[in-house]
Design a protein around this nucleic acid. Structure first.
Lengths: 349, 349
DNA sequence: TCAGGTCTGGAAACCGGTTTCCGTTAGGAT
DNA sequence: ATCCTAACGGAAACCGGTTTCCAGACCTGA
């Protein structure tokens, strides 16, 4: 039992003050209809006078619903996850829900227990890009229902919001190939990332389908620092264009290339992925694929909410779009074998 | 009462399975000592077999503590607030707490009700840079105790974590003055922002103290887009250096200056504020003042936690540090009147 | 005037835990 | 063998709400 002396005023206090039962106070507070107007007024007056606020905790326990949704992300420092958080926060707030955030710090082992723990306090769970291996994930999911996966495929009975990173990376590759590039360098992300696997698979396909295309795969990471630190290996790989795992990596790469004096895109083209807010403000502005990040969060929420309330979740993952900006250009060395002129400004392709 | 058929297993189920009372199960689950070893084993076995998880809700109600802390920020899209969120999340997770996030969307009117609502579900509240006017804030604070303010001064009885933005902006000004600049342009942030007021006041003081110093104040904003869009007015103001409200504004400014062909820092010096992760990867890398953002969140949590548990919150706001990078240089036009050479690399000032 | 239906609002059970209080039992001391 | 005490664990109260169930008041129609 609480050791607290209970400073807060409870429904019993209001009932006493209004000279009615606790049940009646509850009815009034929740707008149940069968209460006489004068009693309603009396209760409201008492509640106002005492500045009464019903305990959400007690309500939740009694109602069996918390109006909270848990969100688990690998890394709160990543703009992609931040935007998803924003999307979920604002969309769910509209339905009276609040978001509880948890971060696994990219640690696959910690993920399961954090997920369970966070889920216990909420009505549902959204896991973004879980790094958990497949068996563990399959074992975890039933325990945290209702659950929604973002950027990770689960079993059929678990719904998910998926970005087709395979297609996204292929858009980038096709763009670069059209510019004449034939030897690309791919900077890979975390090995545990499912979306990284999607990218790699798409690259395999592209390499088979496009004759003459070579792709050098380098382990890199997901952060600016990773991109910044990869420059030497990138240059050693002697490609004419770099496909970075995401915009952050591309950002770090660009910064370092600028320092060592490699001209982008004249000597080397660079592409990102996600189109985080900063991408169009990079120098040069970054060619990337727009992944509608906030929308992703909103969609995840909508589907989850629909699943909770029994409705069906309308809406679909918004389309990807290649945004051609100033960081990509024709393959250097040869003339203008490419028929099109690339806008150097901040065109929104 | 819950309409749910109660699929979840409760302490009563475990008690029945282990043939003990609910009280004993509770004692075992919480490691109370006065339980015989064989009974402990029996209860544990039953709990494991049933895969029992105590309801956090019921625990919280009974214990009177939720182990959750609410965080209210004006804008989840801002890296500064994101980092503070990270700091709070990781620091509080270590103490078994979870963070509930709420966003006011820069709407002062919504802030009070959101704060109250979020606070009700948690043990405490952290408000970052509240945009609420002074009277409303003073009225709100007593209702949401225990509460912690970040980047906003409250009444003496409400503790807060404050960054001395006045001093920070002065560091920047002094740096620019030392480089020979005498006519500065300040890009102001949101009017409702207390930290913006601190900056403005410090600029007044600087203008009085430093003879020959002129500062042109322009309304701008807090986002990249705001900075990007301010370039024309900045150039029209004919200063030799720009003090941006924060790094984001500086970023937008730099991007546009690069487009219109204004050389930084040769023709115009630019400074930011906060030192967000991207600042040193800007082109040119951005001179700014490092505000230890994560530390801010951690400190806010530590103080709050101390206040809750009765201990005293050790630790102080970490120091500010000017990071001189490549976006600032001597006043253009005249020779090297400044004795020092500025490192063009990514020196960590 | 009386039977029957409709409103109202109180008593009590319930959500799922924790803790106080107390009775029982076992063990040690005398 | 008897008494005292410590250890153990069950019954019940409690946290602060919501909801079912039911009794009484009131109104209506015959």
């Amino acid at each position: 039992m609480g050791r607290t002396p209970k400073d807060s005023i409870t429904i019993a206090d209001v009932a006493r003050a209004a000279e009615v039962s606790r049940a009646t106070v509850s009815r009034v507070m929740n707008g149940r209809l069968n209460v006489a107007p004068d009693i309603v007024a009396r209760v409201r007056a008492a509640a106002d006078r005492l500045n009464y606020r019903p305990s959400d905790l007690a309500r939740s326990l009694s109602l069996g619903t918390t109006n909270m949704v848990a969100l688990l992300v690998p890394d709160l420092g990543n703009p992609l996850f931040q935007q998803i958080l924003r999307g979920i926060t604002s969309a769910s707030a509209a339905a009276g829900y609040r978001v509880l955030v948890a971060e696994s710090d990219e640690d696959p082992d910690a993920e399961a227990s954090i997920a369970i723990e966070a889920r216990r306090r909420c009505d549902a769970l959204i896991m973004v890009s879980p790094r958990l291996d497949e068996p563990s994930l399959l074992e975890l999911l039933p325990q945290v229902q209702p659950v929604m996966l973002v950027n990770r495929q689960g079993p059929p009975e678990v719904s998910s919001v998926l970005v087709d990173y395979g297609r996204a990376v292929r858009m980038v590759v096709d763009h670069l190939v059209a510019l004449g590039h034939r030897r690309l360098v791919f900077l890979a992300g975390p090995a545990a990332s499912a979306s990284n696997t999607l990218r790699l698979r798409a690259l395999d396909v592209a390499e088979r389908e496009i004759t003459g295309l070579e792709i050098v795969r380098l382990d890199c990471g997901r952060s600016i620092e990773d991109g910044y630190g990869a420059v030497d290996r990138v240059l050693a790989a002697r490609g004419t264009a770099v496909v970075a795992f995401n915009d952050l990596v591309a950002f770090g790469l660009l910064a370092r290339l600028n320092e060592v004096g490699v001209a982008v895109p004249d000597e080397l083209s660079v592409t990102g992925m996600d189109d985080i807010g900063l991408a169009r403000f990079a120098v040069p502005s970054l060619t990337t694929v727009r992944v509608p990040q906030r929308d992703l969060g909103e969609l995840a929420w909508r589907r989850l909410h629909a699943a909770i309330t029994g409705a069906d979740g309308e809406g679909d993952v918004p389309d990807l779009a290649l945004h051609v900006r100033a960081s990509t250009g024709p393959k250097p060395g040869r003339g203008s074998e490419v028929g099109q002129t690339l806008g150097g400004g901040r065109g929104e392709g």
